[in-house]
Amino acid sequence: MTKQSIFGRITTLVRANINSILDSAEDPQKMIDQLIRDYTNNIADAESAIAETIGNLRLLEQDYREDVKTAEEWGRKAIAASGKADELRTAGNTVDADKFDNLAKVALQRQISAENEAKTAEPTIAAQQEVTAKLKDGLNGMKEKLKQLHSKRAELVARAKTAEAQNRVADAVKSIDVLDPTSDLGRFEEKIRRQEALARGKQEIAASTLDAQFNELENFEAVTEVEARLAALKSGRTAQAIEQ
């Protein structure tokens, strides 16, 4: 029953579609770690069961070889006893001849018994050999699946690290986006623009003040010239009056 259960588990695990299992998993990495543990544990169980099966098979094969060897030995003894009986009968000693013929018959009976035991064991040995071969194939299939799982896990870990790195780069690029008004760089640029605008405003104010000063100077000069001309007019009229 235990061997049948293990054989069923081996068959199920070997036929399992790893990619399909991982595709349907919410967390593929956790799922693959669990699969690795399951395969590792079942491989250990399978190895133990196969070792026991092989041990039993070797005992059956050893018993079979011993039965064949025993049958051959009894066959040789039967031949020897029958030959001795023929010699004694030829010599006229029928009593001893009959005795050795009886021994030959006993040897033949033992030979037949050993051959029957060997024949009875043959189907059992064949069945055990078939089971052992299937278990070995299944075990090799499980080990191959385990290699695939380890390879798949390494691939998933590498992909996860790559995705993490890509996300970090994307976040870093986003954080320095000069078009983003909420970014530090955007705020710093806005501050510079305001300072530049303030400087331009001060320059315009300074320029307008200077122009006003020049205008005042021009107006002052104009007033002074008027006053001078008025004074000249008055001075001229006074001179004419004195002459008259």
Rank of each mutant, 00 (worst) to 15 (best):
L13C: 04
A16E: 09
N17G: 08
N19K: 11
S20H: 09
L22S: 09
L22M: 08
D27R: 01
M31R: 15
I36F: 13
R37S: 10
R37F: 10
R37L: 13
R37E: 14
N42G: 07
I43S: 01
I43Q: 02
A49D: 02
A49Y: 00
A49S: 07
T53Q: 13
I54N: 08
G55L: 04
L59R: 08
L59I: 14
L59Q: 12
D63C: 08
D63E: 03
D67S: 12
K69T: 11
E73C: 05
R76I: 00
A78Q: 01
I79R: 01
I79H: 00
K84L: 02
A91E: 04
A97G: 15
A97H: 12
A97N: 01
D98P: 02
R110T: 03
Q111R: 01
S113K: 06
E115W: 00
E115Q: 02
A118P: 12
K119C: 01
T120R: 14
P123Q: 00
T124D: 10
Q129V: 05
V131L: 11
A133C: 15
K136Q: 15
K136M: 01
D137Y: 14
G141V: 01
K143W: 00
K147Q: 05
A154L: 07
A154W: 14
L156V: 06
L156Q: 15
A160R: 15
T162L: 08
A170K: 11
V173Q: 06
S175V: 04
S175I: 10
I176F: 09
V178T: 08
L179V: 02
D184V: 04
L185Q: 04
F188D: 06
E189I: 15
R193K: 06
L198T: 12
L198M: 04
G201C: 03
G201W: 03
S208P: 11
L210K: 14
E216V: 06
N219S: 08
A222K: 12
A222H: 15
V223R: 11
V226L: 15
R229C: 04
R229S: 07
R229F: 08
A231W: 10
A231D: 11
A232I: 03
K234F: 08
R237L: 07
T238W: 08
Q240W: 14
A241Q: 05
A241P: 14
E243G: 04
E243R: 12
